[in-house]
Design a protein around this nucleic acid. Sequence first.
RNA 1: GGGCGUAUAGCUCAGUUGGUUAGAGCGCCACAUUGACAUUGUGGAGGUCUCCGGUUCGAGUCCGGGUACGCCCACCA
Length: 887
Amino acid sequence: MPELPKAYEPSQHEDEIALKERESGLYTPENLPGNRTEVFSMVLPPPNATGTLHMGHAVMLAIQDIMVRFARMRGKKTLWLPGTDHAAIATQVKVETLLMKEEGKTRHDLGREAFLQKVDAFVEKSRATIQHQVRSMGCSIDWTREAFTLDEPRNLAVRTMFKKMYDDGLMYRGYRVINWDPVGQTVISNDELVPKERTGTLYTFKYSKDFPITIATTRPETKVGDTAVAVHPGDERYKAFIGKTVSVVFAGASLDIQVIADEEVDPAFGTGALGVTPAHSVIDEAMAKRHDLKMIQVIDEKARMTEAAGSTVAGLPVLEAREKIVTWLRSEGLLEKEEETTQIVSTAERTGAVIEPLPKLQWFVDVEKAFAFKQSAHMPVAGLQDGQMVTIQSLLQHAVRSKAVTIIPERFEKSYFHWVDNYRPWCVSRQLWYGHRIPAWYKGEEVYVGVDAPEGSGWEQDTDVLDTWFSAGMWTYSTMGWPKEDAPDLREYHPTTMLETGYDILPIWVVRMIFMSLYTLGEIPFSYVYLHGLVRDDQGRKMSKALENIIDPLTMKQKYGADATRLSLVVGSTPGNDVKLSEEKIAGYRNFVNKLWNIARFVFLSVEEVRKVETTPTPITEADTWILNRLNQTITSVTSMIDEPAFLFSQAAEVLRDFTWGDFADWYVEVAKGQLQDEVLKQSTEETLLYVLQNVLKMWHPYMPFVTTRLWEEFGSDKMLLIEDWPEVVDVREEGSFEAFKEIITVIRGTRATYKIDPVKKVGVMIIGESVDVLRPLETAIRQLGRVESVTFAKTMERPEGSVFLHAGEYAVYIPLAGVIDLVAERARLSGELKNVQDYVVVLEKKLANTGFIDKAPVEAVEKERGKLAEAAAKGEVLTQQIAALG
RNA sequence: GGGCGUAUAGCUCAGUUGGUUAGAGCGCCACAUUGACAUUGUGGAGGUCUCCGGUUCGAGUCCGGGUACGCCCACCA
């Protein structure tokens, strides 16, 4: 076997390891060895099929791969299912931009079919890129199940779903005010809006001279569509007019203005009266609905005034119409006031156009319509009865309130409820070409909704497509064979265990997945939602091309390795909080990867034969016992931290790093160098080194699959590390006293004498120095550590039983360690026992009674503790005799 | 305007249900280093835990309020 080089070079191993793992077929759960009954399943939030992977994806992939590899090693039937999202609007806009740049054409020049072919070609290329990138990060994901939100099986699922919702009355076609993008010529969902602040003018005026109420608006041009004036029911100023209808001619439009009373009106704002424009304001529309008002559309899809707007402004763009109306108001003497205000206008995320609220015939999902809940036979939801009347909204509330779905971190439950409690109808139709075409056909006034086109001629399919989140919302089960109710994957892997995603899409995506699964299958889509944060630069700014602060995961992988890149994204970050990333941070983890490499290298070079050690070695020395105990402690805490319901990936890695670097490398390996020289200790030391290393590699594997797998190869095992069993705590031994050795050695190091440890005899430590002058200060230092009974010097010592480190001609010191050992053990034991006042007093008492400890602690600290006790005693909270015992 | 979050060492952040003298990594300083690892080791300096009040024997942790910053939602017309 060729010797390992001094430094780990990721690029020389990563591709090969990734390939080997993938070709092993073990990413597919059915191929995993053993009889696995417990299932862990998770779908990959599908990246948009438009571009390349960024650090945000890398975080997601790293965390998810940790979960998956851990579950697999823990013996679970583990599925991680990949795919990509067609991202309807994002993709279409991107291809349109390219088309314009490269060929100078619009999509209309090509026509629907030809354009869609172009999009497909683009998406195909993009998907291949993403696939390659996901692989290169070391993701152990089941490619045999790869899905795409717009492929044939998903399209069937979408059509089926749409029809089901239509049949249940949850999907309806309605004439409602929506956000219209006059540039993109499409409806925009709330999620695609970008609010922008700008200054506008608030005009205060009357519709006509004899109209009794003055109103205010920033959009006078919409006032030609008004059908009412709303006032607060308690507003004394207007009480007399409520219920009256006044006919006016306003800028050439004949209006019948009804005065209505509505709680929503703020009497303190403006004039306390609101002109109601039902067709061009979502709020006014709701008000109009409550009061059964007429809706007059005065603005069209091109943001021009319609015929209904009256002769003065018909046909004008809205801004020109506004000026014209203001001029008219002035000339008529109706304008009372003009004031500058800052207002928030919604703009379209993709096109930047100012959104025009318009009434349009659209498809909506009704979130408040009651329907009979159909409970899953396979995985029923606790707290719900089969046939119980529910709404989408009530299901969403139930899922999280009942803890059927747990959101991590918990605080995001607040934003979840904030969202679902105010859930509004979801407009799902989009005037795009790219996406799932709405499975509705029209013939005159007739509407047909079905999975397939209706029989007969004359039917025309709806030209719109569905919001991309509609198909994304079905992702957990559309990928598992639904609508086939008995599809094997659906039965085996749904509900999934976990959904891991960014907190920014909790409302857009997670909420929809939850209700769609509950509605369709009668089961939750996942038990846990783990939300990671956004990746920002080292100054906390979003990464963007403009700022030139993008850190590309693939460049980092090439430079520092995939393992270091993964660690840098996981360690030091907590769920729901943003991650600040810098190249130095990644370089730091590269150092750690290399440290692990060298620890292994040392072990492999030191032992006679590199072999797997299956059973826990029998410890001989204090150091052996200590490191095995520390290993057991580490296994226990790392396991419980990674496992549900904790999911503390960062903390687990820190515990593991401290053990690997601080305990194993810095202490045990150092001691082992001595032990390996001793014939009696050689074998057990080798076994311990190998055993600890093996377990360390296993525990690091979910975090750093590449370097651990490469090192594991040195053991010559047929079994890949990927499917090795996760370490288990075998037995917990008697506490060792190695901590005491460490304390002493630390003091000795401070004096710059050379030292060696007697690893066998518990009686002491030998200090070997060149002269007694060097050793004298040591004696003092060591005595301060505890109740040291005696310190002995000798120029030449007779070799103590079991000792190996005496050198003739040198001086040595022996120190009985009993006192120090007791002290350390006591301190460790006590630290976890503080529960109430009494315990505290008992601890204090022991602490104070322990002279060694008192010697160590500063006088003030001891006095402080005594003071606290006295104070407590004064309040009668503690036993006076305990105080007395302290003197 | 409503909601949520964050504030701990020079920097990036941990700190589970309140509990011994508040931690880590990086950076800095000193020393060591032909040694598995100059991608190393040891030690050190550095914190009124944002501020004010409260509960408690005890608060970084719980409660109330203030300040600063960030995010989400919202067409006060």
